[in-house]
């Protein structure tokens, strides 16, 4: 499908390329980073991991950088605040900026003025909201596109948030690994739930999308049995779900997981999250304007 001939333009199902090819790669990264940054911040705030929140802040900055890299006129990026009324990208940009801004202050306070608990809590709540917003908007940006049927689903934002959360939790796990055992166990428990939820959401999403339109079901077919199958089954399923779940379930029964295994699970989880963004973006297909064969 990606070797679509020039004369097949909108005469056959056509893969979207603007958000995947070349510079478009940075969009997938940005979405991924936005997701885990948001997830990580929420988790870190909950578990009160300053390091976690700091890493979330870093990841969010990285997301901004990735976004800039995608733009052909990054110096004009200030203009992207102009239309939050209708544009999810504008909204997202505002969310990111606010998140970064709020977190910056919160981190400074937490580190150097830890006694300002009231302010810190307020900031945490606010930053948490924007962390969530930053994470979920990536899903809305995609699901808003009614032209691409496989994206145009209310499940996508949930999927992106969940995926971001699982990634964030994984990173938090890595950060906490040497530390408090009880916290670790709790984290692992949460991760287990989130992973299972993620698997279910992906299932529901694919199932649901298959029945939404021909273009969408075609996209799903490409994901699970076509040209994107490798990316989907190995990237999303194996790395993103299977390996982490297997590790966390074995660790559950074993009661104790080796740090090697945990690291594998974490890395695997992150690869999976990235693969999911790529898979979904790549699966984006336009419906031909002429009746296709």
């Amino acid at each position: 499908m990606s070797q679509i001939k020039p004369y097949d333009f909108m005469v056959k199902y056509q893969q979207q390329k603007d958000w995947i090819d070349g510079r478009g790669n940075f969009i997938a990264f940005a979405f991924f980073l936005g997701g885990i940054s948001g997830g990580l911040y929420l988790a870190a705030a909950y578990f009160d991991s300053l390091l976690g929140m700091f890493v979330a802040w870093l990841l969010s900055l990285l997301m901004g950088v990735s976004y800039m890299a995608h733009l052909s006129h990054p110096f004009r990026s200030w203009r992207m605040f102009m239309k939050p009324g209708t544009s999810w990208i504008a909204r997202g940009f505002i969310f990111i900026m606010l998140f970064i801004g709020l977190t910056t202050i919160q981190l400074i306070l937490s580190q150097w003025v830890p006694e300002a608990t009231g302010a810190i809590t307020v900031l945490k709540v606010l930053a948490g909201i924007f962390a969530f917003a930053q994470s979920i908007y990536t899903g809305f940006a995609v699901s808003y596109v009614s032209a691409i049927k496989v994206w145009n689903s209310a499940i996508v934002p949930i999927l992106f948030v969940t995926c971001g959360l699982s990634g964030g939790l994984a990173i938090l796990l890595a950060i906490t690994m040497g530390g408090d055992h009880a916290q670790l166990v709790m984290l692992e428990n949460v991760i287990r739930v989130v992973l299972i939820a993620l698997a279910i959401i992906i299932g529901v999403y694919l199932w649901n999308t298959t029945y939404s339109s021909t273009a969408a079901s075609d996209a799903v077919k490409r994901l699970i049995g076509g040209s994107l199958a490798l990316l989907f089954w190995i990237g999303v399923f194996l790395f993103g779900i299977a390996i982490p779940i297997i590790i966390s379930i074995t660790s559950y029964f074993a009661g104790e997981a080796s740090s090697g295994l945990l690291i594998t699970a974490i890395v695997s989880e992150i690869i999976g999250g990235l693969a999911l963004r790529f898979a979904i973006l790549k699966a984006g297909m336009y419906t031909p304007l002429l009746p296709a064969e």
Binding site: W19, G24, H70, L71, S72, R76, A141, A147, I148
Partner: peptide, 8 residues
């Protein structure tokens, strides 16, 4: 800015 959202 070249974000390509409109193209999408």
């Amino acid at each position: 800015v070249g974000c390509r959202y409109c193209m999408i």
